[in-house]
Design a protein around this nucleic acid. Structure first.
Lengths: 233, 233
DNA sequence: CGGTTCATGTCGCAC
DNA sequence: GTGCGACGTGAACCG
């Protein structure tokens, strides 16, 4: 189920990769390569030693020395390997967009193939998690807050938690699991404005942003729009 | 400069990885592993065959069968390998946050080490590129537009292009290289509001969003705020 | 399939 | 270091 080659040379590396992917395996190549990308933007990398990962879903990743994100990548299209003399080409074409990634190897030091797992993770601590907490303890939003619905639709998009305050006013709550900036404040403002426009003209609508922290610019933005922030956890 | 082992077993794999990283190399492992992450959120993966990439900057990536993004990762902290009997642990601790990733291998099929490149890419077609085009041909924004400054500071953040319209009004331009949604419209609105507040009360301030495309919701949002959209490219 | 939002987003840059 | 916005963002969810 797992195979590998050391210093396979261009031709054997190409055959190895082609065969392995034909068997539904993931392929990993290590070698000297350069990349070019054209489509949504143009980007190219000079020759250098990198690792290429070609997954069963035809995602192709090229990783260099640093960073979480690949130096080059392709996904959602078709992939072809081709050995032309002393160069190995991996050509990736995206069906819909005009995206095209080409990886040109001039040497392959190592090749490996394996059958990778595809399992869903167990997760918690996300925004959905925070929603549970707010529904279990609505006073987090404000004292006396009564939640009515989650993901209530408005013309501006869905409000995370929708309910009524102790004074009967409509309250729209936007939840963020992390420190929030101006974008989150604007998001809440869009929802509140949409509700004010949609509900009866005399309806009182408030907006509360619930998050562990907020930046200063976002705080001012909320204040300028009559919205409030409620820290959590 | 490149090394590899097939079916090294736990102990040899641990020593191999440790040595290679000590020499400043990147390490790639393929084997049966499970992961747990705790910190900004909690997330765990069941045991399965995956590939782990441990980069010279101590970024650790765990990739499964699908997707551009890793199934688990860590970066910006310290990494330690440890072999305890029949299990190999890769423990990653982030210095600042409480982030901690643990990868537990119960088998290692392949190990490879190499000295990866770290080159900056050549890029074009980005937002900076669009700015050049607008400055070269300001009529893209609106007929008679005269750019004055780029990245002009406002209390809400920097305006991409700042200038005057044919009528003498202040014009704030927000550039996007791709299809824009409500967030971009709100961003422009924040800048325009900040300018209206900062400039003389009688100053006429307009806002123009320049992008290849716009969603319907964003278009309505612009209209509701008296802002305009100008398609490009 | 398109639109919108979430993400352990990551990454770069300026203050 | 923090804040802010771009990114070939990717990925899920919902109409």
């Amino acid at each position: 189920m797992t195979r590998a080659l050391s210093s396979p040379g261009i031709d054997r590396a190409a055959a190895f990769a082609s065969d392995a992917r034909g068997d539904g395996l993931a392929v990993s190549l290590v070698g000297e390569c350069a990349t070019t990308f054209e489509g949504r933007a143009e980007r190219s990398l000079p020759a250098g030693v990198r690792t290429l990962l070609w997954k069963p879903d035809d995602t192709v990743l090229v990783h260099g020395a640093t960073g979480r994100d690949p130096d080059a990548w392709a996904s959602g299209g078709s992939v072809a390997v081709e050995a032309t003399g002393d160069e190995l080409f991996v050509r990736c074409d995206s069906g819909d967009a005009a995206d095209a990634l080409t990886v040109r190897f001039t040497a392959v030091q190592h090749a490996a193939a394996f059958d990778p797992a595809d399992d869903d993770p167990e997760a918690s601590g996300t925004e959905a998690d925070l929603k549970e907490r707010v529904l279990a303890d609505p006073d987090i939003v404000e004292p006396g807050f009564q939640p009515r619905t989650t993901e209530r639709e408005t013309p501006a998009g869905p409000v995370d938690v929708y309910g009524r305050g102790r004074d009967g006013a409509v309250v729209a709550v936007e939840l963020k699991a992390r420190r929030v900036g101006p974008a989150a404040a604007s998001q809440l403002e869009r929802y509140v404005n949409a509700l004010r426009r949609d509900l009866h003209a005399d309806a009182d609508v408030r907006g509360v942003l619930v998050a562990p922290e907020i930046t200063e610019k976002a705080r001012r933005l909320l204040a300028a729009n009559g919205l409030s922030f409620s820290p959590v956890e």
